[in-house]
Design a protein around this nucleic acid. Structure first.
Length: 488
DNA sequence: AAAACCAGCAACCGCCTTTCA
DNA sequence: TTGAAAGGCGGTTGCTGGTTT
């Protein structure tokens, strides 16, 4: 333990951060060793609990809550001090996958550790991983969760839902309301590995767009100007002891393989990205409770969120799709409309979905006047759909009231050359968009990459259908640096 | 050497639940 | 039954000290 606040000897120092509450004269701020001694003595005599009586009976000028916290987090004799062991870290990761931010329950599983300790550890870890552009959970755990989820689903007739958790972790079963994680982003898992995005064939991308599979296209950014103090390999002091390279290598394959459309589909044994279907935890979702996404930012091109109604399809498509799908198949397939309805169902109550749903409603009313004829190709339909969503997401990003605006701000802060002088930036953008930043404007780059994904000419300039949606191009351009848009 | 950045940590805040009179 | 008090919990803030630029 570093120099503790309790080492402070004077009341003045102790109250440096806090201030005496004028009304009741209860001290705040760091505890002094004297106060600690008083509290320990009191608990020895009277036992834990009734914390408000401490002040009355011992003369300690601390509120009951503060006493309880101090005792629980620092003075309890059974506390285990020091850094977390590898086993403890592994356990925390497992428990978080299982419980989410239930620090107290996690602490109950880790003797000698406090919820505050675990919470601090986790939040620090999250920040590191975000910066590194790595998923929150190691692939081993994702795989475990996947498998356990399958087993859980297969054993749906069991009287309670704990089989999943117990199978996963071979530990005590908890009942975790599924709703706990329903609003979490689902596509973060792709974040770290999107350098491979440009390797995804355009037709595959198109098929993905036309499906309800939740492939969020996101770009990992470990900000080039930000350093990582520790080796990334330290973040996963799991039994596998994956180094960063090993970790990425391990993921590189599955990223492509795990596409339900790829020919070498081999789903069951591959770690999946993002959240395993129906997982109770935000696996690899990149959230931070205390700060906007600062490391990896998300730049979502047409992104279909994972649908509650198609959990199985995330990793294990219940209905195997043709490995090579022709446009004709797409025409006959209801997948596009199905995807729309699935995606936009209000039952998808996630925040992003909710925003997009509202946006889609507005969009629908706007587009009534320019309905495409029935002869519109499915390709156009798919493209429109994807672009609509791109546009919708961008609109949401530009809405200062939108929660997505926050990440948009991150996008701008990361991408725009406002900061100006970093020589890393062109190279950085280049690495992300896979093109020469020196020769293309950001909007050109974006369109270029979208052409790669959707198909040449489908996006942007030549396609009449898309020309009806010039705002998408504008939006992307603005998103990537034209600072006249949305006030940037 | 100084400034900036960052990780780690302790503690507070506010909300919610539980307990009890 | 109800309202106040106590306790529990998760989120957040702010400080310290180490590291990097």
């Amino acid at each position: 333990m570093r120099k503790g606040h309790s080492d402070l000897s004077s009341v003045e120092e102790g109250s440096r951060r806090g201030s005496m509450r004028e009304s009741c004269h209860l001290k705040k701020g760091p505890w002094t060793s004297t106060e600690d001694a008083i509290l320990v003595d009191y608990v020895k005599k009277h036992g834990e609990g009734n914390w408000n009586a401490v002040q009355k009976n011992s003369g300690l000028s601390r509120c009951g809550k503060s006493c309880r916290l101090r005792w629980a987090n620092h003075l309890r004799p059974d506390l285990k001090k020091g850094v977390f062991t590898t086993e403890e870290e592994r356990r925390i990761i497992e428990l978080h996958a299982k419980l989410g931010n239930k620090w107290a329950r996690m602490a109950a599983e880790l003797p000698g550790r406090t919820d505050n300790e675990i919470k601090n550890y986790w939040n620090t870890r999250i920040k590191r991983l975000q910066r590194a552009g790595l998923p929150i959970y190691p692939p081993d755990l994702c795989l475990q969760v996947n498998r356990s989820q399958e087993e859980s689903q297969n054993a749906a007739s069991l009287p309670n839902g704990d089989s999943y958790a117990s199978n996963l972790l071979q530990s005590d079963a908890f009942e975790i309301p599924r709703v706990e994680f329903e609003n979490l982003e689902l596509n973060q898992g792709c974040l770290s590995y999107s350098p491979m995005l440009h390797d995804i064939p355009a037709n595959t991308m198109l098929k993905r767009v036309g499906s309800s599979y939740g492939y969020g296209l996101m770009f990992p950014i470990a900000h080039p100007t930000k350093r990582l103090r520790e080796s990334v390999s330290n973040y996963f002091s799991m039994p596998n002891q994956l180094t960063e390279n090993a970790y990425r290598k391990r993921f590189d394959g599955p990223f492509e393989i795990s596409s339900p459309y790829d020919s070498n589909l081999n789903t069951n044994d591959q770690p999946s990205f993002g959240i395993p279907p129906g997982s109770d935890a935000p696996l690899n979702s990149n959230f931070s409770p205390s700060e906007p996404m600062s490391g990896p930012i998300k730049l979502e091109l047409p992104s279909y969120q994972y649908s509650d109604t198609q959990e199985d399809s995330w990793v294990n498509p219940a209905y195997p799709l043709p490995l090579v799908e022709s446009v004709d198949n797409l025409i006959q397939s209801p997948s596009v409309e199905q995807a729309k309805s699935d995606y936009l169902t209000p039952q998808n109550s996630g925040l992003l979905e909710a925003v997009l749903h509202e946006s889609q409603k507005l969009k629908t009313s706007k587009d009534d006047s320019c309905q495409q004829s029935s002869s519109t190709s499915v390709l156009d339909d798919v493209t429109n759909f994807s672009l609509n969503h791109c546009e919708m997401e961008f609109e949401a990003h530009c809405d200062p009231n939108s929660p997505l605006a926050h990440s948009a701000a991150s996008v701008f802060s990361e991408f725009t050359p406002v900061s100006g002088s970093s020589s890393d930036e062109p190279q950085f953008i280049e690495s992300i968009l896979g093109c020469n930043a020196k020769n293309e404007t950001p909007s050109q780059m974006a369109v270029s990459r979208l052409d790669d994904f959707i198909g040449p000419g489908q996006f942007g300039h030549n396609n009449g259908c898309v020309r009806d949606k010039p705002s998408v191009t504008d939006a992307i351009a603005a998103l990537l640096g034209e600072d006249t848009y949305c006030g940037y």
